[in-house]
């Protein structure tokens, strides 16, 4: 087993709360078993920024801004298998709540009308421009597997990843899936 090359994995954190990555760390002692088979390349956990070619790309978060879309497309290009981790990537989830409002209203509420803000203005440099609507990742790229949950608990992540490592697509059923 130790002779086999490790499966290269990259993860990205788009429009989400990082809860899915936290839940990944909740694998606890199973992380040791996982890293016997997997090499984590670029990821918010390793803080490596450049995405190398990998076997599995894992995406947390929805596409909220132009940078999210760019990172997602890069990861897709670099990955053999792309996995949507958590509800934001899969449905838009909480970030998509803003879709009920016009973008101008959302920005004004966030940067100008906030109770603690004096003479605020909407930033137009450094930060990436927001998309008009928050969208799930499969509306931009092909997604090969999904791990639902907000966040998916460690057991769901373990099931999803071990199935993929075994060369199978995770099959969800009432005993192992949650949308919350």
């Amino acid at each position: 087993m130790s002779d086999q090359p490790k499966v290269k994995v990259a993860t990205v954190w788009l429009g989400g709360c990082s809860g899915c990555h936290m839940s990944f760390l909740d694998l606890d002692e199973r992380l040791v078993d996982l890293f016997k088979l997997v090499e984590l390349t670029s990821s918010p956990i390793t803080d490596l920024k450049e995405i190398p070619p990998v076997d599995v790309g894992i995406v947390e978060g929805a596409v909220c801004n132009e940078e999210n879309a760019h990172v997602l497309k890069t990861l897709r290009k670099q990955s053999k298998i792309l996995v949507a981790l958590g509800d934001c990537a899969i449905t838009g989830n909480v970030p998509a709540l803003r879709n009920q409002k016009d973008l101008g209203e959302v920005l004004a509420r966030g940067y100008i009308e906030t109770e603690s803000t004096c003479a605020g203005e909407v930033p137009n440099e450094v930060v990436p421009p927001l998309c008009a609507k928050v969208r799930p990742i499969q509306e931009f790229v092909k997604v090969d597997a999904f791990i639902p949950g907000c966040p998916p608990d460690a057991d769901a992540i373990w099931y999803g990843l071990t199935e993929l490592l075994a060369g199978r697509k995770p099959q969800w059923n009432p005993s192992n899936v949650r949308y919350d």
């Binding site: 949507a84 509800d87 899969i90 449905t91 838009g92 989830n93 909480v94 998509a96 709540l97 799930p136 499969q138 997604v143 597997a145 999904f146 791990i147 639902p148 907000c150 995770p170 099959q171 969800w172 059923n173 009432p174 899936v177 949650r178 949308y179 919350d180």
Partner: peptide, 26 residues
């Protein structure tokens, strides 16, 4: 959006149907 719905945690028949049919992505 299940996480912010009061019928989350199994009180929603749509959610339960999604689980039953293994719906993971739309």
């Amino acid at each position: 959006i299940c996480p912010i719905c009061p019928m989350n945690k199994g009180d929603c028949e749509l959610q339960m149907s999604g689980y039953k049919f293994g719906i993971d992505g739309i």
